[in-house]
Each structure stands twice: as structure tokens, then as C-alpha cells.
Nucleic acid binder design. Sequence first.
DNA 1: TTGTAAGCGTTATCAG
DNA 2: CTGATAACGCTTACAA
Lengths: 339, 339
Amino acid sequence: MAVGSAADGRPARLADVARLAGVSPATASKALNNREQVRAETRERVVSAAEALGFRPHNSARHLASGRSRTIGLITHDLEGRFSIPILMGAEDVAGTGDVSVLLCDARGDSIREQHHLHTLLSRRVDGLIVVGARTDPRPSLGALPVPVVYAYAPSEDPQDTSVVTDDLAGGRMAVEHLLALGRSRIGIVAGDIDFLAARQRVDGAMRALTEAGLEPVGGTALYGAWTEEWGRIAAASILGRHPEVDALVCGSDLIARGALETARERGRAVPQEIAVLGHDNWGLISDGARPRLSSIDLNLEELGRRAAALLFGAIDGDPRPRTTTIPSRLVPRGSTAG
Amino acid sequence: MAVGSAADGRPARLADVARLAGVSPATASKALNNREQVRAETRERVVSAAEALGFRPHNSARHLASGRSRTIGLITHDLEGRFSIPILMGAEDVAGTGDVSVLLCDARGDSIREQHHLHTLLSRRVDGLIVVGARTDPRPSLGALPVPVVYAYAPSEDPQDTSVVTDDLAGGRMAVEHLLALGRSRIGIVAGDIDFLAARQRVDGAMRALTEAGLEPVGGTALYGAWTEEWGRIAAASILGRHPEVDALVCGSDLIARGALETARERGRAVPQEIAVLGHDNWGLISDGARPRLSSIDLNLEELGRRAAALLFGAIDGDPRPRTTTIPSRLVPRGSTAG
DNA sequence: TTGTAAGCGTTATCAG
DNA sequence: CTGATAACGCTTACAA
């Protein structure tokens, strides 16, 4: 059988299809690309011929002739972290639907490596580029490039670039409002690494919600530290010791929340009855292992990836959107803040 | 300045470089590709010209002319899991070094989707293919393809295919031998999901080491369950209750180990003094959060990815290795099994 | 509606 | 060592 090949061994090309269908290559091309200038009956003959031969258009040839590579580049700086992956999945999802492929490059936070990959991708004439940062702090713009670029997760410092970001401010606010709605009012804030914009914004959002409710956090201020369980334990121990009246903890990440939650339990505080604990990131493996399971703020990263890809395809099709888009976060309530 | 372009706005092409260097395109091509048939002085002139114009060879044109796309396809079935990522990183690493790019496709365990991506990649005439499975159980072969294929993590069912796999048997053995060396002899085995080959092989390896030492596991047999902390807690509680003499636990994963470790501690058993706990996978975030930090068996997945890529490039260069390669695991001792 | 022919930017062959 | 010239497989005016 002739799956994937012409009469001999080589892969079928358009000319083979055309010959079998009894038309010219030009017509075969139009038929297969759904151009309107082709009789329905002819199109069918061409399509059958293509199928019979297992014809797969040679993408590089199409690229050379048409100018479009049907390929986008994805430069990530955090492949091993867990933020890139959902973004990447979202982008790949949208791309796959539009019959475009994704070239993946891992720059590992190194701008030299980024530059190298940038050149590689430009040399492959990608139709566009998505750059995924390792953290939400703004990053230097790549400047003017021959193709559209979308910055995901880490926005470009240049507001004229197209960026898609998380909404950590709203996330922090959402966290506190959830706890307030549950009747908690002595709320402690255990933040992440103060060097990270995400840590500060989550705190800012939480503080605003508290202020609007006429409250302030237990201890008067948020405790910044590290993105680790260890820090969650230390901070929780400190707050529980100094402010035993605390009835809720907003944590900068699920890992921190996990440490805080376990410390509270070890000290005999029932979660959520006596102390509610809320995390950020909604990281399944961390929150599912906790007892009770962790409530968390989800950043909707996969949606972020989809949006980034959608914006990129828009720009490729001539509709640039030079601004920053914010993806809303959402609360995922579980046992650690149950009623 | 003329960065990335000829006199006008368009990107420079080989002809521009050739003209500026005062040679023919053919010579320019040879010079830039380090062909031997070119005078050193000429080569230099061409290289300078290329630099001055910011010349980036058009990959699709090269592809069309040379037959090599300098691109490999990577189909993964477990993007969101944590096994694919290091493999992917290793492969990307090797590829980047060889100036080839990686087209990423996420098939999500769905063979329809896999088939779709396979066609896309073949249509892009990738030079080769790496297929990464979601688990170590053998998977159906893709059969004869026009390009070399390497199966990573999940081997092909066909031994004539090229596969690269982990060594879970040795991992299980290594785990027990480590504990024996530490003087433990009443060792319990808390395994993962029995439906997974990895779970069974880890147990097999552990059992062999025990048998060779003239021992059998506490309780007489391994306890299979799920890949979760929850299962780790349940199993540990059961063993501790029924066999209080247990002095070590080999767990099927770090998540399981984490649950087991915490349960031991909650029941007042000192880790590692009274009970040593050993995990599998060496998942930093899980093992680092545990107190004490978890000893674990590392599968060397990044190395697995590198090997897969190296084998693929070998096959592309005409040196196929139709067999299965096993990547050794390694023990990473930490506090949970300290002296 | 279909076909002819001219590229697209590079590499490969072979003659100088 | 260098340079014409012919591919590579497809798309796209433009002509029929």
C-alpha cells in the first residue's frame, strides 16, 4: 500500500498528487488550500489523490514560497519551575488548533542564552515569539524585532510591548475577602520573598482588603521570608507565639501555607476551625497532600498561555495589541478554609 | 545601522553577503558553512560581510536545498507531570549544542493526538523524533517511519526500536542496600500503584536485595497502594501498628515517603534514629520540605533526555542503535537515612 | 476554472 | 579555490 509515498519509496509531493488527479500543480495547491477558485468536483479529486498518496506538504517549501513558517518560537526561562509548564501547555494548545508548531527554547534565566535562542528562532523565520519569564517582575524588552512578540508571565518593561500577566493584587485581595466572608478578622500574612514583585503584590492586595474592612493584619504587618515550607513553619510559629488570637493565615504560596498549616496543627490549633489557612498558586500536589486540603488562589496560568498565544496570532494576522493584559485569578476553596 | 538587514528593510540574504564580500553566492555559502574548499582570507571576508549585514541563513531554504531541517520533534505524553520536564531539558540541551531546534508537541496520553502530531512533524520533515511516555510501561511502537525515532522513559514494545529507560530495578535494590549498610534489617516496603511497572520493579529490586541478605520485608510482603502522601500515611500507620519493630521504610516515591515520614514522627518515632525513610524520584520540592530532608533514589532523568537526544543524533548521522539503553539511578542520601 | 511560469533562499554539482 | 547553474517543493501572479 502507498501510505506516505509515491510509487517508489520517496514521500509524495504536490506534483505526484496533481498528476494522479489529472490537474496542474497550481490547481492541486489551490484545491488543498481551500482556495475558492476551484471547482468542487476538482477539489475532491485532488483531495482523494492526496489521501491515496499519503501526501504531506513540505512545510519548508510552503514557507519559502508563501513567507509564512507556521511556526512560533517559545523562549522560557523557567522550564524546571512549575510556572512555565501550564503557560506552555496553553500556548501549545492554541497553536496546535491553528496548525502551527512550537519551537521550544530554554534560556534558563540567562540573557546570553536568550539572545542565542532569539537568533536561532529568527533564523528559522518564526512567525512570532512568546517569551515566558521566571517571575512576574518586568523584564527588559527585546526591542524592535521583525516579528511580533508577546511577553508572558514576566511583562516587558516597555508598555508598548504586548504582555500577559497574572493578577496578584486581586489574588491577595481575594484571599482576604474570602476569609472575611468566613467571619475571620484576626488575619496574619505570611508572605514570600520580598525581592519578588509577586510577593509584594499579593501582600498589597491583602492589605487593601483589610484596610477597607477597617482592619490591620495580626502583628501590624506582613511577614516576608522565602518561598519555602520551612519559612511557613517559622513564620507561623512566630505568629502563633506572639499573637495567639490569630484566626487565619494568608500565605504567599502553597508551599508556605503547607508549612504554616502543619505548624498550626502541631501546636494543637484545629484547621480550619480555629485557624484558617489559605495559599497561593493552587499547586495540586502540595495542596492535596495537606490535611485538610489547602484552599488556594489559582493564577489561571494555562489561560494565560492561551491568551498569550491568541494575542500573538492576532498580531501575526495584523492586529497588534500593544499593551498589558491581566488574567484574573480565582479562589479555589478547600478544607483549610471550610465554612 | 544595518543590524539584521540589507540596505533596505528586508533581512539580508546570502546574495547580499556575497555581493558585499565580492564573491559568488556559492562561495559565500561554502565559506559560511566551513567547507574546506575556500581560501582562509576569502572566508574571513565573507564572515565579516555576513556580520556587517546581520545575516541569518534562512533555515527553510537550507532545508529545501540540503534535505536536513535541523529540527527534531519531541512528542510528550506527560507535560504537566514532572517526568517529562527534565527529559525535555536534557534533550533540548543536546539539541541546542548541535544547532538543531526542538518542535514540542503535547499528546497528553492520547494516541489520536499523538498520531496528529506525528503527521504534523513529518510534514515539517523533522530529522528525527523523540517520544516521551508518561510512565515506564512499554508502549506500542510507532512502526517504520521515514526518520529515526527514540522512545524515552516509556520504551517501545518492539525491542528493535531505540529506547532509553530508567533503572527501577537497580533503584529498588540500591535503596535496600543503603539501608542494610546503615545496619537496618527490619525493612518495610511501601510501594506505589501496582498497576505501574515502575512500582513493581522498584519492589522487585528491593526484594532481591533483601533476599540476598537472607531477609524478608517486615510484614512479609510489599504494600502496594497509590502514588500519594495519603497512601504513605495509611501504609506507615498500618506497618507501625502491626510491626512496631520496623526500623526502615523503602517508599515507592518521595510523596509516599513524605507521608510515611510524617506519620512516623507523629507517632513519636524519631527519624532517622528509630526509623529510616527512603523515597524515590528525588523530587527536590518534596524532599526539601520534609524534616529531616528525604533521602531518595534519583532516576537521572535529565541524563536520560541527553542520552535520548544523543542516540537520536547518532541515528540521524547513520548510526542506529536498535536496542534499549538503561540509565543508572543513583542514591541521594539525606537526613532521613543519616548515619 | 485551470494552467504556465516565475520565484522563494539556499546548497550541490560540476566545470573553470 | 571559485563560480555558473540547476535543483529543492511549493505558492502565486498572470495568462488562457
